[in-house]
């Protein structure tokens, strides 16, 4: 187990290094950060002087080494726009994004498992057919459109839910600013969560359905029927457990992807999370913030994948973690 973690840790370090190198080398192509810092009428000399002052005119390697040596000490640089350490800025926005991902995950789990199982058991029912049809539409509609549609229906026409933002937030343990513990905050969470879930939900329903159908055809399930075990036990204990294995693998990867999709969802809902922050940073050419974001998201990917591997081992004892003989 320890060997597994050590190996993962070194993988993570390599991943971060590569990410930092790539994100650092694309920054020249993003545009000129100076333009976002000064007014239009400021002369070229003034801008050059500022560039010198900020070290932007140094050769690539000099800039990278300067960045890397600071990064090793935990300093990812200061955001141009926020004028604060980029790491702190992102950490402040992280809870909002994680809550959004959490909300979407809850929705996906709550809906995909029962619907997937039901439509696997009753593939010919009208409900299953409708769900399958809708899921095709769900997969193909862009997030942006889903979001606007939901806002139009629930915020403007029905006026049930707020149209943007995070609403009232409370501080928990002094560090975690959360919207989960107030009615207003939860109301604000509903539309963005459904929007984010809309990308993954159809995928998971279809995945669970097809896996479940396959499992229901297997010998051991047939044997269970022959033994006269109650349908509920067969479906939800024996069959579902084996269905979940590939679902967990895909799920782990998709949670990472979902963090990426938060960029769009957060932008439409003006959700103050780190996805929106990233998009704004790209628009403003706030390079320290961009680099820090990519590194932190890289870390999130590595951590979630490690967890998925661990959970996989728990669900299926025949799977061995790397390093364990």
């Amino acid at each position: 187990m320890i060997a597994f973690f050590v190996k993962r840790f070194f993988q993570a370090v390599v991943v971060m290094f590569v990410i930092s190198l790539i994100s650092f080398s694309i920054q020249d192509n993003l545009g000129d950060p100076l333009r976002e810092l000064v007014g239009q009428a400021v002369s070229e000399e003034e801008r050059q002087a500022l560039r010198d002052e900020m070290g932007l005119n140094d050769p690539f390697l000099v800039q990278y080494v300067r960045f890397a040596s600071k990064a090793l000490q935990g300093d990812l640089g200061d955001s141009y726009f926020f004028k604060q350490p980029a790491f702190d800025v992102i950490m402040k926005k992280l809870p909002a994004t994680l809550e959004l991902v959490f909300g979407a995950t809850v929705i996906i789990v709550l809906f995909s498992v029962p619907i997937g199982v039901y439509s696997a058991i009753n593939p010919q029912s009208w409900f299953s057919k409708t769900v399958m049809g809708l899921s095709i539409i769900g997969i193909s509609v862009p997030v942006f459109l889903t979001a606007i549609g939901l806002i139009y229906l629930f915020a403007i026409e029905l006026n049930w839910l707020p149209s943007y933002g995070r609403g009232e937030t409370t501080q928990v343990w002094g560090v975690w600013e959360t919207g989960l513990f107030s009615a207003d905050g939860l109301k604000h969470l509903i539309l963005p969560s459904f929007t984010l879930a809309s990308i993954m939900l159809p995928l998971f329903i279809r995945l669970i359905r097809s896996e479940m159908m396959e499992v229901l055809q297997s010998e051991y399930v047939k044997f269970a029927w022959a033994k006269g075990i109650s349908p509920r036990r067969i479906y939800f204990l024996h069959a579902l457990k084996n269905t979940m294995l590939p679902v967990i693998t895909v799920g782990g990867v998709q949670i990472g992807t979902m963090v990426a999709y938060t960029i769009l969802t957060e932008t439409v809902f003006q959700w103050p999370g780190m996805g929106f922050l990233f998009l704004e940073a790209v628009n403003r050419v706030d390079t320290p913030l961009i680099v820090a974001y990519l590194i932190i998201v890289g870390a999130i990917f590595v951590v979630t994948n490690t967890f998925v591997d661990l959970i996989y081992g728990l669900v299926n004892p025949t799977v061995k973690l790397a390093g364990r003989k």
Partner: peptide, 18 residues
């Protein structure tokens, strides 16, 4: 003052009374 970057969302917020 809340910044709302996306124009459709900004308009929606006004129409929804937010």
């Amino acid at each position: 003052l809340t910044p709302i970057k996306e124009a459709p969302t900004r308009v929606a917020a006004l129409l929804a009374g937010d």
